[in-house]
């Protein structure tokens, strides 16, 4: 489409001032600056000494320092929180891909009673906000501990998964919620990808004596790299960035980084430098993903909009 239009444009007389292009680039540059400036300010502030931060005139040029980073790493429990965030982020991403892949396979390739109902329900409940989840489970959680989400039904976790341990109940709980929040989108995304794989491949594998699990893991999953990438980006983004559930459900051992960052908000004497250093560190993994996978992110947004 673009090609034909461009040719049509090119037939016009030449050497006119390309006002269209000029305004287009001007707009692009303005939007780019507006997008980048706040992020740059955070980044720059995290490398500033207190004098530079507190000077009345904003200092765009300054002597960079790592003081703020040193402080948050040595004087706060930054590293345990980083590990907690990473475990929760990667854990929920892995669980989402596996369970969404299996569910999408069943929905795409098998027929069974209740299929439509399951599909519709999944699509309707996907917008429940984290705040609702936090409010409606926290009471039971605090009263009884993890596993006791429903009044009257209790089940205990094995020894070693109690509070304050490395893989704590609160981390498992967050993984559960982040996975649940992402499953509907991931199932529908992967559903679309599986539909595009020719059924003949699976039939051939079954003729060769493979069972369904082998078909799924050896034939389908290896062909779904692109779908898994999009799904993983969106799940990791939620799990890494989410704040409200993490604030309510984690304890002082298992906080995630956004909860840690919010602790720097004080009514007086805010340590802007340290706050911005934590912010910068939180933003680095999603930024890296953006640079390497902007195309997949846009694909995911468009899929979410166009297909559900």
């Amino acid at each position: 489409m673009a090609g034909t239009l461009d040719r049509a444009v090119d037939d016009r007389p030449r050497r006119r001032i390309p006002w269209g292009d000029i305004s287009r680039y001007a707009a692009l540059i303005v939007f780019t600056l507006i997008t980048l400036a706040p992020v740059y300010v955070m980044f720059a502030t995290s490398f500033k000494e207190l004098v530079d931060i507190q000077s009345r005139v904003p200092r765009w040029i300054f002597m960079p320092t790592l003081t703020n980073y040193e402080t948050i790493i040595t004087q706060y429990r930054f590293l345990p929180y980083l590990i907690s965030s990473a475990v929760i982020g990667l854990g929920s991403t892995a669980i989402t891909l596996l369970t969404a892949g299996m569910a999408a396979f069943a929905l795409a390739r098998m027929r069974f009673p209740g299929r439509g109902l399951i599909a519709q329900t999944t699509l309707v409940i996907r917008m429940i906000p984290p705040a609702v989840l936090a409010v409606t489970v926290i009471g039971f959680w605090i009263a009884w501990g993890i596993g006791d989400l429903v009044p009257g039904i209790r089940f205990t976790l094995p020894e070693g998964l109690g509070r304050g341990n490395f893989l704590d109940g609160s981390q498992l709980g967050l993984m559960l919620f982040y996975t649940a929040l992402n499953l509907p989108f991931s199932i529908w995304l992967l559903f679309g990808f599986i539909k595009q794989i020719p059924v003949e491949l699976e039939e051939a594998a079954i003729v060769d004596g493979a069972n369904l699990l082998q078909v799924l893991f050896r034939v389908i999953f290896p062909l779904m790299g692109a779908g898994f990438a999009v799904s993983a980006i969106f799940t990791f983004r939620i799990a890494w960035n989410e704040f409200i559930l993490a604030l309510m459900l984690t304890n002082r051992f298992t906080k995630t980084l956004p909860v840690f960052a919010a602790e720097f908000i004080r009514d007086d004497g805010v340590q802007w430098g340290q706050m911005m250093a934590v912010g910068t560190l939180i933003v680095i993994p999603p930024m890296l993903i953006t640079f390497f996978a902007a195309r997949q992110i846009i694909q995911g947004v468009a899929a979410g909009a166009v297909k559900g």
């Binding site: 960035n241 956004p258 912010g279 939180i282 933003v283 999603p286 992110i297 846009i298």
Partner: peptide, 14 residues
């Protein structure tokens, strides 16, 4: 794409 990937908490802090 960048703003969409930044944690809301960090957007608030900035």
């Amino acid at each position: 794409v960048m703003p969409l990937m930044i944690a809301p908490v960090v957007v608030g802090l900035i």
